[in-house]
């Protein structure tokens, strides 16, 4: 159990949130020009870092807003929380 600071509602228990996977993945501009491998790379392949990871989270049982989080997967230490569309903080 850990606490997450929702950028809209404030500090809440983790059970109110759901994780939406890796953040800052950019959709290719011309999907039709990609090979199957390139498309699969974009669609399915995700980093699974043991350490600091950039993730999307949703406050599912609260304000239902999406936001980004920098989390250390080793110890669940949250380094930063920032809104959608904002630039990730530089480490």
């Amino acid at each position: 159990m850990f606490l997450i600071n929702c950028p809209y509602c404030g500090e809440r228990d983790q059970s109110e949130f759901s994780c939406g996977g890796e953040a800052h993945i950019i959709r290719p501009k011309q999907p039709t020009e990609l090979s199957d491998d390139q498309w699969a790379e974009y669609l399915f392949m995700r980093k699974n870092i043991k350490g600091v990871q950039f993730e999307r989270w949703n406050h599912a049982h609260g304000c239902r807003k999406w936001f980004n989080m920098v989390r250390d997967t080793k110890n669940d230490k949250i380094h930063a929380v920032y809104k959608m569309g904002e630039k990730p903080p530089v480490e």
């Binding site: 509602c9 809440r12 059970s15 109110e16 049982h61 609260g62 304000c63």
Partner: peptide, 10 residues
């Protein structure tokens, strides 16, 4: 006001 869970219910 708050939105949260009560007995696993929104």
């Amino acid at each position: 006001v708050t939105q949260t869970l009560l007995n696993h219910t929104d």
